[in-house]
Design a binder for these strands. Structure first.
Length: 192
DNA sequence: ACCGTGATGTTCT
DNA sequence: GAACATCACGGTG
């Protein structure tokens, strides 16, 4: 079952925690690829110095201010795309970064897109999984209730651990918030 | 296995 | 002009 709008229109921390164990899917002209989400991070707008939306609405962050359930993609370090899910309701600028997947469908296609064959390293990082799933900057604003990119429920009930977020040292006190969620003992995390 | 580093393009100051 | 929610590679142990 595809997650519906209401799932996303809750606070970002709840959405981030509950996305662990769900299945992220892209269905593009060259094939369908997917993986179980094993690592997420919540970015909580006005109360979170690490969030891109912390300093208000800009051309880049305007998607945060729309309804939950749309895609936020951005380019980092000049070469990697990061895939996020906008959370909460209009004008509450929160989002969830998808940081790692356990590959499921279309593994050969993902290997081709990545130029790698090691399964463990296929989707074990935000830039890696974006590449493996064929996400481009054109996915900015894509509707997760559509058919190109969406998230499905699964039967998996992972044990979930909360930790500090990765690489947000610049964010002062916010760097210590436990807003990273991982499937405990998964082999597919970005940092083991 | 663990470091150090270079690549590269937006965004915001 | 600096900073950046990263990755892959090549070096050294």
């Amino acid at each position: 079952m595809k997650l519906e709008r209401a799932f996303y229109q809750r606070d970002g921390v709840t959405v981030a925690r509950e996305l662990v164990g769900k299945k992220l899917v892209t269905n593009l002209p060259d094939g369908l690829t997917s993986g179980i989400i094993v690592e997420t991070e919540a970015y909580m707008g006005t109360i979170d110095a690490a969030a891109h939306s912390y300093r208000g609405k800009t051309e880049r962050t305007k998607i945060f201010y729309g309804a939950g359930g749309f895609v936020y993609v951005y380019l980092i370090y000049g070469m990697h795309l990061c895939t996020n899910v906008v959370a909460n309701v209009e004008n509450v600028p929160e989002a969830v970064l998808i940081r790692a997947l356990e590959p499921v469908d279309g593994i050969e296609l993902m290997k081709r897109r990545r130029g790698k064959k090691n399964l463990r390293e296929l989707c074990s990082g935000p830039g890696k999984l974006s590449r493996a799933l064929g996400v481009t900057k054109n996915f900015y604003g894509a509707d997760l209730c559509g058919d190109e990119i969406f998230i499905e429920t699964t039967e998996i009930k992972p044990r979930i651990a909360a930790t500090k977020r990765i690489n947000v040292d610049y964010a002062g006190a916010a760097a210590d918030y436990l807003w990273r969620f991982v499937a405990a003992n998964s082999k597919f995390l970005s940092v083991p």
